[in-house]
């Protein structure tokens, strides 16, 4: 009883800290435009849905929303499949060249993006990928962070099941997708969440690699809302809130699947 109370108390405290800035965002989103963001304004009872409704009305965020969904979705599907394949090879085939390949996976992450953005831009223009969904999806279909995550996870899973299946004469394909993949489910769910939201929120590449406004992703569209004449806070926060709500729903659904894929029999050696 005491432990339960203690647990709820502690978690509740942390929740307050994490949620407060988000409540601030929501509060400002519901303010009329143009008011100074002083304590009096924020604590006042003035509430308006005008900003949210205006954004929903103007269709200004509909297309960016769709684009973010396409890019995030495409990249996520690619990463679950490819990331898993690569991670499996790196975890299970302890070959000399795989050590080097793992190094390349990490090394790409060591390079700050600002330094490679010019050649990447040139590459996109020359290949005709510039201003297409391809520019936003193809380079990110195999995310090194994802490979590394799943590889580390697989390292922690005993190989007993695979070996047993191999003895039983299962094909490598079957072992890969029907035995190991389910066991890696928690990591793949995390991978999906991570890749989806990284792309959902990524600004730099969509901004640099596209020009047409009908390819704007949500973060780019939100940055455009800021305009030049100072930030319209209520408008921007309304947009940010609209961007968060659907992904929060997706998260709540996905996080349920972070449950063990390892059956009891798997580790009885």
């Amino acid at each position: 009883m005491v432990t339960t109370l203690f647990r709820y108390g502690l978690l509740g405290l942390v929740l307050m800290i994490t949620i407060f800035p988000m409540l601030w965002m929501l509060r400002v989103a519901l303010l009329p435009k143009g008011l100074p963001l002083t304590a009096e304004t924020l604590l006042s009872v003035t509430v308006t849905g005008a900003n949210v409704l205006a954004l929903l009305d103007s269709d200004g965020l509909v297309r960016p929303f769709f684009n973010s969904l396409v890019v995030g979705g495409g990249v996520t599907i690619g990463n679950i499949l490819f990331g898993f394949m690569c991670a499996y090879a790196l975890s299970r085939y302890r070959l000399i060249e795989n050590r080097f390949i793992l190094f390349t996976v990490l090394a790409v992450l060591f390079v700050p993006v600002h330094i490679v953005i010019i050649p990447l831009y040139l590459l996109a223009v020359e290949s005709g990928l510039y201003d297409t969904y391809g520019a936003l999806i193809l380079p990110f279909l195999v995310n090194p962070i994802g490979i590394f995550l799943v590889k580390q996870y697989l390292d922690g899973i005993p190989t007993a099941m695979e070996e047993a299946a191999r003895v039983d004469g299962a094909s490598e394909f079957r072992i890969l997708f029907q035995i190991v993949m389910p066991m890696a489910r928690p990591a793949l769910v995390v991978l999906a969440i991570q890749v989806f939201f990284t792309n959902w929120n990524s600004f730099l590449f969509p901004f640099i690699l596209t020009s047409r406004s009908d390819l704007h992703t949500l973060p780019v569209a939100l940055a455009m809302i800021q305009g030049r004449q100072g930030i319209e806070w209520p408008e921007l926060m309304a947009g940010a809130t609209l961007a968060v709500v659907p992904v929060l729903v997706v998260f709540v659904i996905l996080q349920r699947h972070i449950v063990s894929g390892i059956t009891a029999g798997a580790i009885k050696q």
Partner: peptide, 30 residues
């Protein structure tokens, strides 16, 4: 295949005599 496709799409020559100007600007306010 999709890479090839995008390359193909990107290099289709324009048939019309129309000139297209690219104009980059900062007035994004709604």
């Amino acid at each position: 295949v999709s890479i090839a496709l995008f390359i193909a799409v990107g290099t289709v020559p324009s048939l019309s005599a129309k000139t297209t100007l690219e104009f980059w600007q900062f007035w994004t306010d709604s």
